[in-house]
Simulated assay, not measured.
Amino acid sequence: MRKPPAAQSENLDVLVVDDDEAGLLDLIASLRRAGLSCLGASTGWEALEALLKGPVPSVIVTDIRMPELDGLELAQRLGRMDLARLPELVFISGSADLGHAVDAIRLRARDLLTKPVDLRRLIQIVRDVQLERQAQSLSKATPHRDDMPVHGKPDARMQSKSVDVEAMSIVVLSNLRKLRRVRSENLPAGLAVEASWEILLDLYVSELRSERTSLTALGGSAGVPLTSGLRRIHELESKGMLMRTPDEKDRRRAAAHLTEKGRETVQSFIRSYVTFCRESDSQHADK
């Protein structure tokens, strides 16, 4: 089993399952460069063993065609396991056909990707799953509108409180990513999402999670080629919205951080967005 560095083992983002040794190692390396913690398994049985020992990943990326226990059988066994939360499934295949697509839908897979894997698409799937899960956790910890006084209308004291930016950030950013995905699906092919805004959002989320983000990982997860991502990072740095800090152990590497200007840019938008949503809810409640 291919294990990530010890520092990543407590929090697992992705488990990759593929009997193609070279493809497995290459995909693991690419996901790690994007800042994701990752484990690898070369057989379905090895993957099940990893799940039993923990930690349970947010996403399992598995090849469909494997000897002994293939990806579809792995997914079926996964559904019968006693796990607090089942991982999301992404199937990969060198020759996916209609039958595979039907099987993927039946097993409620998140996506079916053909080899060579579209890395940017896979990273975005993992990011979406992470944000959705954090949004779900946050929604369980906050009162439902039906629990509010005066026939579902917010209490006056709640309306007068300032927006808790950090508490609402995961929900807002999750919704923004969904909106961006829908928007991009209805645009002509070849139009990319604005990478500079993606970089600011990713850095802000990383700060909330107390995560250190390298320049390479940040540029690789921006939804554009790495060279374009690094160019956007340089532009944001020149505008005073982010800064880089050299790695004390390796001066050739550097981490990215939001400046006060960059942080306030994101928080200002979140405040406006949350205020708009509250006003919208209030208008619907009055009708």
Rank of each mutant, 00 (worst) to 15 (best):
E211L: 13
V150N: 08
Q159S: 15
V266Q: 03
L179Y: 12
R177W: 01
P116Y: 12
E279V: 00
V205N: 09
S139D: 11
L208I: 07
L83C: 04
R120Q: 15
A192C: 01
E211S: 13
H284Y: 13
M241G: 01
G94D: 04
H234M: 05
L72G: 01
H234A: 11
L138I: 13
V193P: 02
I105P: 00
K249H: 15
E264A: 11
I125S: 04
R251Y: 07
M168G: 02
I64C: 03
C277Q: 09
M66H: 09
I233E: 09
L173E: 06
M148G: 05
L230A: 01
G262D: 04
D63Q: 08
L119M: 13
D97P: 04
G229T: 05
S272H: 07
S37Y: 08
A41C: 02
R177K: 10
N186I: 00
V129E: 14
R157A: 15
R244K: 13
A256P: 02
L176Y: 09
S42V: 13
G44S: 06
K287S: 14
L131E: 04
R133C: 02
S95A: 14
R108W: 05
V182D: 15
V150Q: 06
L39W: 12
V102Q: 14
R180E: 15
P87R: 03
L36Q: 07
H234L: 07
K140E: 14
S268P: 01
R2V: 07
V205P: 09
L51A: 04
D19A: 08
Q159C: 15
V126F: 10
D118I: 03
I125V: 11
L98G: 05
A141T: 03
V126K: 09
P116V: 10
M66F: 07
R177C: 06
R77P: 01
A192M: 03
V126W: 10
R232C: 13
Q124K: 08
W45F: 03
S160Q: 15
E279L: 09
R181Q: 15
L258V: 00
D18N: 13
D128R: 12
S184P: 02
Q283E: 13
G94T: 02
P67Y: 09
L12N: 12
R77S: 06
V150P: 00
R32Q: 15
T259M: 01
D250G: 10
K239A: 11
R212W: 12
V171R: 09
V59H: 10
H100A: 12
L201D: 13
Q76G: 03
K239I: 01
T275I: 05
